[in-house]
Amino acid sequence: MNLLRPQFPSLLLRKKISNHFPTIVSDNYAGGRLGAEQLHKRGAKKLLFVSKAPIKDVSERRRQGFIDYCQENNLRYDIMLAEDKRYFSSDYDHFIDNHLINGKFQFDGVFSDTDEYASDFWHLLVKHQVLVPKDVQIIGFDAAKIYPRQPIFLSAIRQSTEKMAEIAVQKLLTQFKSEKIDKDNLITILPVSYTQGITTKS
């Protein structure tokens, strides 16, 4: 559904919801591929995508990138989606418990479409005495920091929030100077990168 045309300088960040607003998004599909690729490069052979239902918008692009990389490289993979409920992480806990054989988790690489779900899964694996990253490597998506000096713990696909902010300011200033919006360049897709943390092997 398209929203009304903006009557004042406006833009959208991270997700497209209208054909009338300039939009700045990360390359979510490439990010999903990169997550699977980084796990593969570090020796993971059976991968798991972890998220929460329903999967849509940017999450679907991330999942599809992950799936396509796995299929193109003949990697075994599975999808684990928790139910959309208040204590959804209990589904992760049950999944881990049901996929442990003699204390060994049946996947050696985990990728999630958010840092939040990746972190939840990481702590539950530790609770079940699964070694991260020795036995299972984990990559999230975002690599956001609350403060500049905050250390990176979770390996993740990083969105360039600095570049996003810079382009956002440029586009808003352009709108202030002119009412005309370039309809042929409404969407700006920014590249993503991999950030090493302690949940993957170096």
Rank of each mutant, 00 (worst) to 15 (best):
T188N: 08
I139E: 01
G35Y: 13
K16L: 14
Y69L: 07
V50P: 02
I146C: 06
A82P: 07
I189G: 00
T161S: 14
H40Q: 04
I181A: 02
D120E: 08
A118T: 00
L173C: 12
E83F: 04
K180W: 01
G197M: 00
M1I: 13
G65W: 08
N73R: 09
G109V: 05
A168M: 03
N28H: 14
P151C: 10
D115M: 00
S59W: 08
L12M: 14
L173V: 15
Q150D: 06
Q129T: 03
D142H: 05
T174K: 15
N2F: 13
L12V: 03
K41A: 10
V132P: 00
N28Q: 11
G43Q: 06
Q64M: 14
Q38Y: 04
S51E: 08
S18L: 11
F88C: 02
D184A: 11
F21P: 13
D120P: 03
I101A: 06
S90T: 10
A144F: 11
E166A: 08
L81M: 13
K45E: 15
E116C: 00
Y87H: 12
L190C: 05
F8L: 14
K127Y: 01
L173P: 02
H99G: 04
Q159C: 12
D68Y: 04
L75A: 09
P133T: 02
F107W: 07
V50H: 01
V136E: 08
N98T: 12
S193I: 09
K46D: 03
K45H: 06
Q175V: 15
P133G: 00
L173S: 12
Q129K: 09
L100Y: 04
T195A: 13
T161Y: 15
G109N: 04
L186K: 09
I138W: 01
S112T: 03
L131E: 11
K46G: 05
D108K: 07
Y29C: 14
Y77N: 11
G32N: 10
I157G: 12
K177I: 02
A44D: 09
K177V: 01
P6N: 03
L3A: 07
D135F: 00
M164Y: 08
F88Y: 14
M164E: 15
I17R: 10
H99R: 04
Y77L: 13
Q7W: 05
V132N: 00
A53D: 08
V130F: 06
K171Y: 10
P54F: 09
W122E: 03
P9T: 03
